[in-house]
């Protein structure tokens, strides 16, 4: 079997910004002394005059981005998820969200797969924080192909967008020739009638693998990739929930306030009687270690999905 190509979605972010430098003359990129890590250094190399380093001052960076947007620029403000969504939450809410300014927040190093830096840098709360801000679009791409498309879609969309990227290299499973990104629309990766697995971000690759493993066990799982957590593709999720009757959500994020909760709300509010199992980080902090090992330790592998599916189906 050929080796599957692996790319970190933060690399996709930086590379796409560098491409967009020539295509969108009013696109500017801001960073807070993390250009090497967020990969905005690629944009800086392509277009140094429109790269604005704000130093280690994320709150000010978000405000500056708001001012740039108010003056007609399209700013991408970049930092780690912890500092973009966490430290600067109130600046994002009041200076960007409230006036609905055209700012894109590029947040890398999301989730526990950050790895060795440990809990202070492993943000598992950003989706929850960002989705509470009125009008904020929240996108969590799954692989290189999707991340590149998401950055382009965000640049075209008018309004605030939160983009979530990972540090760790992950399998590229989408085909760039056929992949189509539509903001707010989930993607059915595998049809199935027994159980639905709704995954987002880096967990989508695990869900695809789980689908194959379940098939071998005679379980027909529907696999859905939700790249846009807000606005959520409720129609697709509710259809799957009512047709399969059982749903598993999986995210590299707290099970409080993230994809799982969004899916639960959609299912409940639409009156669908359906058991939902939320997989993710269960109300705890991460810790240091290789990112891949942490994913395994926190039970976010294909095998764990298979286990949950079997439990749900009583097999």
């Amino acid at each position: 079997m050929a080796e599957i190509k692996k790319v970190a979605t933060r690399d996709s972010y930086g590379a796409t910004l560098a491409e967009l430098a020539a295509e969108i003359p009013n696109l500017v990129v801001l960073d807070a002394d993390l250009a090497g890590a967020t990969k905005t250094a690629k944009f800086k190399a392509a277009c140094p005059e429109r790269f604005i380093d704000c130093g280690i001052a994320e709150g000010n960076m978000m405000g500056v981005a708001a001012g740039l947007a108010a003056a007609g620029m399209i700013p991408f403000a970049s930092s780690f998820a912890m500092f973009a969504a966490g430290r600067a939450f109130e600046q994002v809410r009041n200076s960007i969200g409230y006036p609905h300014l055209n700012v894109k927040i590029g947040a890398t190093h999301a989730g526990i797969s950050v790895g060795e830096d440990g809990a202070t840098h492993q943000c598992c709360e950003d989706i929850a924080l960002m989705r509470t801000i009125p009008g904020m679009v929240v996108i969590n791409p799954a692989d290189d192909v999707e991340a590149r498309a998401a950055v382009r879609a965000a640049a075209q969309y008018v309004g605030p967008v939160y983009l979530r990227f990972g540090r760790m290299a992950v399998p590229v499973f989408n085909d760039p020739e056929t992949y189509h990104f539509e903001l707010g629309k989930g993607i059915v990766l595998r049809e199935g009638k027994d159980v639905t697995v709704v995954a987002t971000g880096l967990m989508v690759a695990e869900a695809i693998e789980a689908g194959k493993m379940l098939e071998e066990k005679g379980i027909d799982a529907r696999i859905i990739n939700i790249h846009t957590i807000k606005p959520l593709d409720e129609e697709l999720i509710c259809k799957a929930a009512s047709e399969t009757g059982k749903v598993i959500t999986i995210e590299e994020h707290s099970v409080i306030g993230g994809l799982g909760d969004a899916v639960c709300a959609a299912v409940c509010e639409n009156g669908i009687g359906c058991k939902v199992v939320k997989m993710g980080v269960h109300d705890e902090f991460g810790h240091s270690g290789p990112g891949g090992d942490l994913i395994t330790e926190f039970g976010l592998r294909a095998a764990n999905i298979v286990e949950e599916a079997c439990k749900l189906l009583g097999k």
Partner: peptide, 22 residues
């Protein structure tokens, strides 16, 4: 610019000024 949360307006003003420079 919308404002009210103290400390934030000056950052937005910086962004507007930087936009003019760009």
């Amino acid at each position: 610019m919308s404002s009210g949360s103290l400390g934030q307006g000056i950052s937005a003003a910086c962004g507007m000024a930087k936009a003019a420079k760009l």
